[in-house]
Design a protein around this nucleic acid. Sequence first.
DNA 1: ATTCCACCTGGAGCGTGCTCCAGGTCAACC
DNA 2: GGTTGACCTGGAGCACGCTCCAGGTGGAAT
Lengths: 117, 117
Amino acid sequence: MYTPAEAVEETGFSLDTLRYYEKIGLLERVDRNAAGQRRFSEEDIGWLGTLRCLRETGMPIATMLRFAELVRAGDHTVPDRIKLLEEHDRQVQEQIANLIERQDYIHHKISYYRSLL
Amino acid sequence: MYTPAEAVEETGFSLDTLRYYEKIGLLERVDRNAAGQRRFSEEDIGWLGTLRCLRETGMPIATMLRFAELVRAGDHTVPDRIKLLEEHDRQVQEQIANLIERQDYIHHKISYYRSLL
DNA sequence: ATTCCACCTGGAGCGTGCTCCAGGTCAACC
DNA sequence: GGTTGACCTGGAGCACGCTCCAGGTGGAAT
């Protein structure tokens, strides 16, 4: 079990973000201690790792939410989860290709400026 | 000379965005025809191409604005422009590396889900 | 000539994803 | 037992980057 501060440390999300994710249903009702303070399970931390990966690769919250719902709905949604991740993977691939192309332009621009010195 | 519609076509920015960029000073006062309608020069279009590249690689508007000011300030700012672009290039490199790493995680996740079928 | 349609300006509004705040409860260490 | 500090909730606010709107002018094709 992780205290809120530990969960922040482990996941890299701010505490406000963790509460927000719980509020909107990205994170299922997190356990509480007697005083009502959150105690994140190992599983929560793992799931937050997945969320972090999706988020950092640009998946919108709404799509993450759909994914979360699929996960909650049980094993029969595995094919749908694959579809969702594959689609996302394509978008990540596009992002990478786009960045590399634009980076090339930036390199040319830098070279050009260097040639002026 | 390009009409607004042509500039939209050439640059991929919406007309509202072009007006916005002019308003905040990313684009220097664009020429007008007698009726006050914008006529974008070849140079404007080229500069918008640069802006598009910076924007798509995640440069914040505020930084683009600093770059625009350097460009306007004249040739003596070339070293500063190089510095700015090099710093941005590093950030783009980081983005790419990060995406590739996360993509790997996504691939593993997909493989895992496939193994369940 | 008329009917469109592109375009204008200034300013308000919006979608996303948090982030912050007030006002309060516990808990834990000294 | 007192103080400090982590945490709670509900809700407001914010940063960013556009996007839309009202109300109006001008130009171009039929």
